[in-house]
Amino acid sequence: MPSSNPIPETARQPADAPSVNALSERLVTRLVDNAARLGVALSRTDGGTVIADAGVAARGSIEAGVLIARICMGGLGRVAVRANLDAAPLWPTMIEVSTSSPVLACLGSQYAGWSLAATKEQTGGKKFFSLGSGPARALAVKEPLFDELAYRDRHERGALVLEVDRLPPQVVIDKVLHDCGLAPDRLTLIVTPTQSVAGTVQVVARVVEVALHKVHVLGVPLDEVVEGVGSAPLPPPAPDGIQAMGRTNDAILYGGRVHLTVRHDDVARRLADNLPAATSRDYGRPFADIFTAFNFDFYQIDSALFAPAEVWVSSLESGATYHGGRVDGRLLHDQWGGQSVAA
């Protein structure tokens, strides 16, 4: 099936560019083959598209969330859970992320930039909306970002992650298949509601991606960034969708730490000064409160807020490392609990 969205020859990737869908394919296979153990429920459409429910009706798991986060990064990142049980830790469970291909892994694959919607007339019920993330974005290249990245994947299989609390209707599945140029049995759709365990993990695992996105917003050339490492606390899921979204955002905005390696010293200095979330006018309140105050409209929130709490930026040019921002453990503990219980 040919793609409906060709891109200019000048914007196509070099012949030796990695395929994020090929690199993540073994991870998708692992998720499907171990679905029962991971708490993931599988179903297939009449055409053979696999739908992996990691938190709508299925329970999901932390391990599933880690695997899904690695799929989101197109197989170009490492994601792990670490126990942080030292005296007075920021939080007892941390997500750690690293990638030596930060631009492609985070913006070319992991970024939730593909808007997928259907009206209630199209679904025969409720309207549907989700942002798609993961390697299949690079097959469809529906976002202007891919022109800047000069990247398009070419692979016969694809996987897309949908952060939504219901399974996708057939009209949305058909759109993804058409735009990606895939046969129905070559697509896997993974559904992870934010208020699920796996959904919480895969959102918090975006701590480096959030940093890369702000690098892009700041107008810094993306090829400046050559390495990315980060960590953020893993909060307990909240049953309420707004609160769950608030917790995952707070984990990064107030607890996320990122270390970037860049090419030039002036870029390192600039990012250390301007990258942290504290540079935003909206910084300092729980994200759920901010979101509610702006009438649940993301676009009214200062874009500078979407960043890690604390950053270190190392320069290959000078060998120096610059630091900016700080974590706010008190805000996190006030929101998530963690107080001692009297005997």
Rank of each mutant, 00 (worst) to 15 (best):
G241A: 07
E209S: 05
H213D: 09
D273P: 06
G230T: 10
L271K: 01
F128I: 03
G228L: 04
G125W: 08
G228A: 10
P184R: 08
A293K: 03
I252Y: 00
T188Q: 13
G132P: 02
A159R: 14
D334R: 15
G319T: 13
V210F: 05
E163R: 03
V32I: 15
E25A: 13
L275G: 00
A11G: 02
S24P: 08
K120F: 08
L67E: 14
T292Q: 13
F128W: 02
T29G: 00
G319I: 15
A22V: 12
K127G: 14
G39K: 10
R166A: 04
R285G: 06
A232V: 00
V56E: 10
M73K: 14
T248G: 09
D174A: 06
A136R: 06
R270W: 11
V197S: 00
P8M: 09
G199S: 07
V141P: 03
S315C: 01
Q195S: 15
P168F: 05
P235E: 06
G134N: 10
L177E: 04
R70A: 05
S130Q: 12
V313K: 11
A304Q: 07
W312P: 00
V313R: 04
R59Y: 00
N295G: 10
A22M: 12
V191W: 12
R70P: 10
R330L: 11
R70G: 03
W114V: 02
P6R: 11
R186E: 08
T49F: 03
C180W: 04
H213I: 15
S318W: 07
G338H: 04
P184D: 03
G124D: 09
G77E: 14
I95Q: 00
L160G: 07
D240S: 12
L42M: 11
A277W: 09
Y254G: 00
A205S: 14
L76F: 01
K142G: 00
A15N: 09
Y111F: 13
G228D: 14
V164N: 09
A244G: 01
R82V: 11
L116M: 05
N295K: 15
R281F: 00
D33N: 12
E121K: 14
S314G: 01
Q243P: 07
A52M: 03
A69T: 15
A17K: 03
D240P: 05
L189D: 13
Y322H: 08
H333E: 08
H216M: 09
S3Y: 05
P236I: 14
G113P: 10
V161H: 08
A57L: 05
R70Y: 04
A17E: 15
H264K: 15
H264S: 03
D16F: 09
D147C: 01
G108Y: 12
A159H: 07
A307F: 05
V176C: 03
A36H: 06
H178E: 11
A183D: 15
F128R: 13
R285I: 04
D185C: 10
V171P: 13
A83P: 08
V229M: 08
H216K: 00
Q122H: 01
A80W: 01
A136Q: 01
R157M: 03
V176F: 10
A87C: 07
A238I: 07
A136N: 06
L271E: 11
K126Y: 14
G284S: 14
P193Q: 02
P92E: 07
C180G: 05
L275S: 02
D265G: 02
V220E: 10
V229N: 09
R257Q: 13
